[in-house]
């Protein structure tokens, strides 16, 4: 049964990969890719990154360069024309990116018969016919400690932040100041972050994030401090140790490596981050964050 869900996830990611190849020149939204294989927009990108081994943007960019490499060899089109098709506006930018991937300049690549093939962190490469022979999604990796936890609904006071992820601190400061001065940050208070958008693929100014603190039923929303109820239901939980800037790696591992083998599906609501210590007085490598990914009820 677990094998069959892994198969199912592989098939769904494959659908997305084929869609990407077929629409390599389009600039589509993240949601458009997620819809192709019925992934929730909240989780799609992390599943993609975990299974494919690179972000969606990296993947599209690399495929465009691989296509350019094929065209250098097989067509007589000018290099600047091929550069433009790959999404680069200048010869220099194209050359730099091409060299980084293939190890030589585009003109050298075109001349040298022995130059061929491109390495990649994923086994998925561009093919002219759009086929996927020897598809190699990332396998295994080291095992991950994941527990399934039932979370009762939590009533939280929150401040919404829209903007770069590394500026969420300001929302936390306002929230904690307003609650703290009234004696509302006591033992048992939980500090929770809700990140609606993946910082790896969303424009910084559009990232939505709620800084949340658990409150009693009698707490009343006021001004920029809102109240909402979050959680409720089963979650897959794993602990991330270290700086917040590396959370993306743990998300990718949980959703792209553990989840496809778990036999479980995700609910279409954002994951939660429970912060166990305060960044103000903790070295970044000692920060502890529990990541909660919402699960559909087990079948």
């Amino acid at each position: 049964m677990k094998n069959s869900t892994y198969q199912l996830y592989t098939e769904r990611i494959l659908k997305v990969l084929i869609f990407i190849q077929k629409n390599l020149d389009e600039e589509l939204s993240l949601d458009a890719y997620a819809r192709v294989a019925h992934f929730s927009p909240y989780h799609f990108h992390r599943i993609f990154r975990g299974m494919v081994g690179e972000s969606l943007h990296e993947h599209i960019r690399r495929l465009r360069l691989e296509r350019a490499a094929t065209r250098l060899k097989r067509t007589r089109r000018s290099i600047i024309e091929i550069a433009l098709e790959a999404g680069y506006n200048t010869h220099e930018a194209f050359t730099r990116a091409f060299r980084a991937l293939c190890g030589c300049s585009p003109s050298h690549y075109r001349r040298d018969r022995s130059a061929a093939g491109t390495p990649g962190s994923s086994g998925v490469h561009y093919r002219e016919d759009g086929s996927f022979h020897n598809l190699q999604l990332r396998v295994g990796g080291e095992p991950m400690e994941v527990r399934i936890e039932h979370v009762a609904p939590l009533r939280v006071a929150f401040v919404r932040h829209v903007g770069p992820y590394n500026e969420v601190e300001t929302a936390w400061e306002r929230l904690c100041m307003h609650l703290g001065k009234d004696g509302l940050l006591g033992p048992g208070t939980r500090f929770i972050g809700i990140c609606y958008d993946d910082p790896e693929v969303t424009a910084p100014e559009k990232i939505r994030y709620d800084a949340c603190v658990t409150v009693d039923p009698d707490f009343v929303a006021a001004g920029e401090i809102g109240v909402q109820t979050i959680g409720g239901g089963e979650y897959a939980v794993t602990t991330h140790l270290g700086p917040y800037s590396n959370l993306g790696q743990t998300y990718a591992k949980l959703l792209g490596q553990w989840l496809p083998r778990s036999g479980r599906e995700l609910r279409s609501e954002p994951s939660l981050e429970f912060y166990l210590n305060a960044p103000e007085s903790t070295d970044p490598e000692d920060l502890i964050t529990d990541i909660y990914a919402p699960l559909e009820p087990a079948t």
Partner: peptide
Amino acid sequence: DRIGALYGVAFTVKMTRKFAGRQDFAIGK
């Protein structure tokens, strides 16, 4: 229980000062 009380007081003192525009301080280890 006492750890909770200690942190509760530390947070409340700190945030009250901050709200009043008085000297803020980082809560130590």
